[in-house]
């Protein structure tokens, strides 16, 4: 564990609490992409298969269960409790391509051609693009509630912070996981435009608005 990894994980946790807070306080899931949320459930279920056979390190296990549980809970909230507020018409990014493309990447790049390793690789590639339906929805609406942008920022910062964590581990421990690093870099690049608008507008106290 190093400071970048810890901050990354805390940022990931924060993103989920911000999302739940947004849904609760505005009593609405407007502006939140159901498709991205569904992809995250798929990401966590395929990545954390090792929950079935261990080893169960306390920190990792609690976090894994939390990420699976909270992502399923958000889907439940969106599907049932706050269904009418869901932007179904605009939230129509074709996730089939993301899932299919990630699966092909997982078949090509994996540590071993076994079910769990292919699923682990699949989860990394899918996570790297899972925010696209959310960013697409943002693009379609052209603006977002500030709290929603805080959520997306915290979620993007988590993987961005894993990059210095990997560099640190490579230097200090001689350990490097190329699939995770490469997918993590792609994921951070996917967020680049969003980060730019977030830093130049939201942080300055302005509303998140995209040029028409």
């Amino acid at each position: 564990m190093n400071i970048f990894r810890l901050l990354g994980d805390l940022s990931h946790l924060a993103s989920i609490f911000i999302l739940l807070h947004k849904i609760r306080t505005t009593k609405s899931c407007a502006g939140i992409s159901f498709r991205s949320q569904a992809l995250y459930v798929l990401v966590y279920l395929t990545r954390y298969l090792d929950l079935l056979w261990g080893p169960w390190l306390l920190y990792n296990t609690v976090m894994k269960l939390f990420f699976i549980g909270s992502s399923v809970y958000v889907l439940y909230l969106m599907k049932f409790d706050y269904k009418p507020s869901h932007d179904m018409g605009l939230d129509n990014f074709k996730v089939e391509y993301l899932i299919g493309g990630s699966f092909v990447m997982a078949l090509l790049f994996n540590l071993a051609f076994t079910f769990d390793e292919v699923m682990w690789s699949f989860s990394l590639w899918l996570e790297s693009v899972a925010i696209l339906p959310q960013l697409f929805l943002l693009q379609r609406t052209g603006e977002a509630e500030t709290i929603t942008t805080h959520y997306i920022f915290a979620l993007g910062a988590y993987r961005a912070l894993y990059i210095p964590n990997w560099l640190y581990r490579w230097v200090m421990e001689g350990r490097v996981e190329f699939i995770a690093v490469f997918a993590g870099i792609i994921q951070t690049i996917v967020y680049a435009d969003f980060f730019y608008v977030y830093f130049t507008k939201v942080i300055q106290g302005q509303k998140f608005e995209l040029p028409a």
Binding site: R5, D9, H12, D50, N60, K64, A112, E177, A180
Partner: peptide, 10 residues
């Protein structure tokens, strides 16, 4: 690479 202890990151 993967160690016998499994994946240690989230």
């Amino acid at each position: 690479g993967k160690e016998k202890g499994g994946k240690d990151e989230l």
